[in-house]
Design a protein around this nucleic acid. Structure first.
Lengths: 210, 210
DNA sequence: TAAGTTTCTGACTAACTGGTTAACAATTAA
DNA sequence: TTAATTGTTAACCAGTTAGTCAGAAACTTA
């Protein structure tokens, strides 16, 4: 009975192994899909025997569930929140910057999330229905307030959020395509800054904020 | 020896069965992924015995390949081309409209394409490297020309194309999420028009064209 | 040290999967 | 009609996969 708040040596080895497995599993799930990622392939990538994987997670579905949760936690932490007092320009800039940095730093997190949604979001219907819908409503309300105050152009706030999400996540999810088209092997730090500048520029101007 | 340009009754039954299989397969591949979609599940959806599926396509990989090709053909037809003489405003409007309509009409096509790219585009590396890179270069050149002529704001043309792609495809790939957030069961015709208007408006203004 | 607990692992199995085959049915062509 | 081609299908098989299990090893605690 290793409860969550007990921190013992045994707890550490458990947590460490689980994290190692989660990271290996995430990569496998992204590369091969849920069914294509076998427990054996996850084990190989984590450099552990297969039976060990199933000692820490009772089955494959459990691993996937844990990977998803781990991804969502990371996501929420990375985005932070908006200060209503800072006005629309800074708010949009901050969201764009945070999301672009996340996309370039953790493309796999974005990818596994994207695949889950594309396939119908069977494992996180609740997440979208409760937490995410709430988040969008709050932010949309804020934008609407700024619009009513004449602080930005009259654009649909919900679709504006979709636009920011799609444009920023694109660099993670479609990195293969983007790199190929740009004839590059990898992204560099200056690409990140360029994308932030580009998207901020065009979206802010699109919202009448420049 | 049923050659492609021969149109016989036997050719018709073949083409009909193959199309039925392709449509069933596309849905299965989207819902379950490549590995998760079994030949049996495709057969069930197509309402044909499994052996019949493997009579028309010699193996599973072949089916997937055919689904991808069918998708890309549809895509290319749907986008059409830009007339360089029409100026940046009409050009961007037309691309946005075409892509948004495609996304709402054929979300599965967009989804299967997205999944393929996310997973590393193993089956269409060549497509991106040749055809798509060419397309982007051509269009980027056109935009750059308009920028140099002072006909639109100085935004990076390649990233502009990425922005348009991501923003429009988002409505197909993430339809589940979007519907949930908007608390809707399905999209309606007026949603399509609203998205076209929204994206045109914000992106055109972002490009200094309004 | 001894007992108890956690970690580790090879070997096994039941279920499933892609693909084959062989026989049969329907259609077409001569 | 007859022969050939095309379409249809059940039954089968070899390989793979998730998950089990029993026992060994390592570590913790008293």
């Amino acid at each position: 009975m290793t409860s969550a708040n007990q921190v013992k040596k045994t707890g550490n080895i458990r947590a460490k192994s689980q994290m190692k497995i989660l990271i290996a599993a995430r990569t496998e799930f992204v590369l091969q899909g849920y069914r294509g990622a076998t427990v054996q392939s996850i084990a190989d990538r984590a450099e552990l025997p297969k039976a060990n994987i199933l000692y820490y997670f009772k089955n494959k579905d459990n691993i996937y569930q844990a990977v998803l949760e781990h991804t969502l936690e990371m996501w929420d932490e990375g985005i932070g929140d908006i200060d209503p007092n800072q006005g629309p320009k800074v708010a949009i800039e901050k969201i764009i910057e945070a999301k672009v940095r996340m996309s370039f730093r953790h493309p796999e997190a974005s990818k596994i999330y994207a695949m889950e949604i594309i396939q119908g979001a069977q494992h996180l219907k609740d997440y979208a229905r409760t937490y995410q819908r709430q988040w969008v409503r709050e932010k949309a309300k804020l934008f609407q307030h700024w619009i009513d105050n004449g602080e930005m152009a009259n654009v649909d706030p919900v679709h504006l959020i979709f636009l920011i999400w799609s444009a920023t996540q694109h660099y993670a999810d479609f990195e293969t395509q983007i790199l190929t088209i740009m004839n590059r092997a990898d992204f560099e730090e200056e690409d990140v800054e360029k994308v932030i500048a580009f998207l901020s520029d065009i979206i802010l101007r699109g919202c009448g904020l420049i």
